[in-house]
Design a binder for these strands. Structure first.
Lengths: 115, 115
DNA sequence: CTAAAACTGAAACAAATGTTTAAGTCAAGG
DNA sequence: CCTTGACTTAAACATTTGTTTCAGTTTTAG
């Protein structure tokens, strides 16, 4: 059942209305339409937006997040959540490794010019 | 003595010529000019660009890098390098901490929607 | 029924980080 | 000298992640 308006989702997920529309355009969330062409979201929409924000903290782009969320059904089962967790965790660890590598370079004692 | 051309600096620092001009416009490096108005860089320019690339790996913006490099004289003394090392290291550690915080949230066991 | 609040798409704007293109100038080698 | 490759500025373009504005439409509460 799609009952939530743009501003409902915005309020529940903590982003702006324009961001909600943007995310729909980008395929991170999907919406039905009223007879008057207004968007109506299911209750999972706000959740997906929150997941998207978490993924953004990790450094994923909207395109990457779209692919991530593409694997998340409207009504996810525990296995879906688990897969998402693993992918997000792996991404975060990857970025952390990259930063550590940069840090190790900085600390290597070599001149910064020679990195 | 300023003898290096744009493409010299580009080659030595591993960035494109347009990036070298961009960095000069942004104040990361400075250049003299020939009588014919062409840029000529000192030997430290390529080094500064390399430092800038390291800082970018850490996630600093060009504006932040400008401020970082503003504290680096054309012919830096060991203390200058040390200060730069410390600032870069602190920034990297900060970003790593932020990622760890995100990772901890993800692993907290709470639903991703509730972060 | 009506007035206010929320919604619509399209397009312009914004900031960051460069790249590309155009038309023209300079420098270096033979 | 003269050709060729490198240089110049300015502006347009590209991408990302949205925000703002416009003019008009829909929904909702009273």
């Amino acid at each position: 059942m799609s009952t939530l308006t743009v501003s409902d989702v915005a309020r529940e997920s903590g982003v702006s209305g324009s961001a909600v529309r943007f995310y729909e355009r980008q395929g991170l969330i999907t919406a039905g339409r009223t007879s008057g062409n207004q968007r109506r979201f299911g209750p999972e929409a706000a959740c997906r937006v929150r997941v998207a924000r978490v993924a953004q903290r990790i450094g994923l782009s909207v395109g990457e997040i779209r692919e991530l969320l593409a694997a998340l059904p409207p009504d996810p089962e525990p296995a879906d959540w688990q897969a998402l967790h693993e992918r997000l965790t792996a991404e975060a660890e990857q970025r952390i490794r990259e930063l550590h590598a940069a840090l190790d370079d900085i600390r290597s004692g070599r001149k910064l010019c020679e990195l």
